[in-house]
């Protein structure tokens, strides 16, 4: 078996999620290559070469792949696909955008967001917002798979893979990058944080989210939100945790003013310890919380910050 993993990277750095996808590749078994596509990605390729278990890093460094637009990136991966039995990417917005396009170009199905590898052709994945776990088997010669990073422990960084350039340049007259408005934050990335504290509609306003800041500072936590908090305009969309937002599985998840709709639980119920702070003792979030505090968040949060 031979596996190609698409590297995830942001702001000139290899994203931590890639090491989790390589772990999924190791569980499948066989030779593992990483594809680093982008513009000015030399340092990213070097970081990828250090990941354990990787034999080769293939680098497509060209303006055509800047911002990893779906059309050229999918054409690139499809071009390389002939060398592989499995194509893997992280179930990030990049992986989700690009990989199904590759699958269709190769006339095969895709298996989305696997959380475990049962055998080289059989995988487990959540369906119905994580309310059921499906075991699926691919009969396609080429398996195209996105990986939920929280399902696999990251590989280490003791490797030294060979780095090789890929010359193929995809034509793309169909799509152009216009702009990006990315959230700037000194806090850890939601998907990678050991502690996440999220606010819901109960926070009442965007300003009130500052009540979470002091606690997040003390715990080194990332800050998340429910969809209701995002829709109400309290915070930007990249903070949404849930079925259609980010999937997190930290050591500690603190849900504040969040009722616990299944679509929210889908994104956080694999957290090791869950704390809920909600003034409604009937709120469904308490059914999954290890520790529930029935309280008004406007009193509980300042007290928590002070006493931590």
């Amino acid at each position: 078996m031979s596996i190609l993993v698409l590297a995830e990277h942001h702001d000139g750095a290899l994203a931590g999620a890639t090491a989790h996808v390589v772990a999924a590749a190791q569980a499948i078994g066989g030779d593992i290559d990483i594809l680093v596509a982008g513009e000015g990605v030399g340092a990213i390729a070097e970081a990828a070469a250090k990941l354990d278990g990787v034999s080769r890093v293939r680098v497509a460094d060209h303006a055509a792949y800047a911002h990893l637009l779906a059309e050229p990136t999918a054409a690139l991966i499809a071009e390389l696909a002939g060398d592989y039995t499995h194509l893997l990417a992280c179930a990030s917005t990049t992986g989700k955008n690009v990989l199904p396009r590759v699958a269709a170009l190769k006339d095969v199905g895709q298996i989305s967001e696997i959380i475990s590898v049962e055998s080289p052709d059989t995988f487990k994945r959540p369906i119905y917002a994580g309310n059921a776990i499906a075991t699926v088997q691919s009969e396609d010669a080429l398996k195209v798979i996105t990986v939920r990073a929280t399902g696999f422990d990251a590989v280490g960084e003791g490797g030294s893979a060979a780095i090789e350039a890929v010359d193929f340049v995809a034509d793309n007259a169909q799509s152009t990058f216009v702009k990006e408005e990315l959230a700037k934050s000194d806090r850890p990335e939601l998907g990678a944080a050991k502690v996440v504290i999220s606010g819901g509609r109960g926070m009442g306003s965007g300003e009130n989210f500052t009540l979470l800041d002091g606690i997040a500072d003390k715990l080194g936590a990332a800050i998340g939100a429910s969809r209701a908090a995002v829709d109400a305009g309290f915070v930007p969309n990249d903070m949404q945790v849930g079925q259609t937002g980010k999937i997190v599985a930290p050591e500690l998840y603190i849900a504040v003013g969040i009722s616990g709709a299944i679509q929210h639980l889908a994104g956080m119920k694999d957290s090791k310890v869950i704390v809920a702070i909600n003034k409604d003792e009937e709120a469904p979030i308490f059914q999954v919380a290890d520790y529930g505090l029935v309280a008004d968040l406007f009193q509980a949060l300042p007290e928590l910050e002070e006493k931590l």
Binding site: H10, L69, T176, F177, V178, K179, E180, E181, L182, D238
Partner: peptide, 8 residues
């Protein structure tokens, strides 16, 4: 997108 918004 994961980091915020992208326009194409």
């Amino acid at each position: 997108v994961d980091g915020g918004l992208q326009t194409v």
